[in-house]
């Protein structure tokens, strides 16, 4: 029992269960209209999702409204989550991101007068369990990498990145397209 020797479960930590399995099952329960499952999803994911929304919107009230909208949409569309299709975390975070982008588009937050966020200081980001992506991101030339981070993490558009970095728009577009191509190839290696 508690003899301090051998906790086989610890080496087999999740006993076959992953957090993703749990989230996917919670989404199924939301699809069956179990509101308790929504609360559990919220407890598990809301802090992560608010952090992401804040980076995109840089406005706490807007970020919290977006988080709220995202959870209402998760509740209403839970039956559309397809386990075969992918990760429940990616699905939920995707919903949040697209709602945040809606907000960015309507509010035209980025006026071109923003200071350039010091994304370089944050790279390589602390990407646990994703050495592959981290490695591939770091293989990109610095300008490309910065453009990817400014768009995905900070929510800037092509033209905003061009303004911020004082780089021609066509060059930014080309860096992004090449970055996507390079990342895809790198991750498939």
């Amino acid at each position: 029992m508690f003899d301090g020797t051998g906790f086989p479960l610890l080496s087999d930590s999740a006993a076959g269960m992953t957090a993703d399995d749990g989230l996917a099952a919670l989404l199924r329960r939301c699809a069956e209209r179990d509101p308790l499952a929504l609360r559990a999803l919220y407890d598990a994911m809301a802090p992560t999702m608010l952090g992401i929304a804040l980076r995109l919107l840089r406005n706490r009230p807007h970020a919290e409204e977006t988080l709220q909208d995202a959870f209402l949409q998760i509740w209403r569309n839970a039956d559309r989550f397809d386990t075969q299709r992918g990760s429940p975390k990616a699905w939920m975070i995707g919903i949040l991101r697209y709602r945040a982008l809606d907000r960015l588009e309507t509010e035209k937050r980025h006026t071109g007068t923003d200071d350039l966020p010091d994304v370089a200081a944050e790279l390589p980001v602390d990407i646990e369990d994703s050495r592959a992506l981290s490695g591939c991101i770091n293989e990109l030339p610095e300008n490309w990498r910065r453009s990817v981070m400014l768009s995905y993490v900070e929510g800037y558009s092509h033209s905003e990145i061009a303004d911020l970095t004082k780089t021609p728009l066509g060059t930014i577009k080309s860096w992004i397209v090449r970055s996507l191509d390079a990342l895809k190839k790198c991750l498939e290696r």
């Binding site: 952090g51 990616a90 981070m149 995905y152």
Partner: peptide, 15 residues
């Protein structure tokens, strides 16, 4: 979405 997810998960959570 899955490829880029780690970049999202690396952002500090906020309660």
């Amino acid at each position: 979405e899955v490829r880029l997810l780690p970049l999202s998960l690396a952002i500090a959570p906020v309660e």
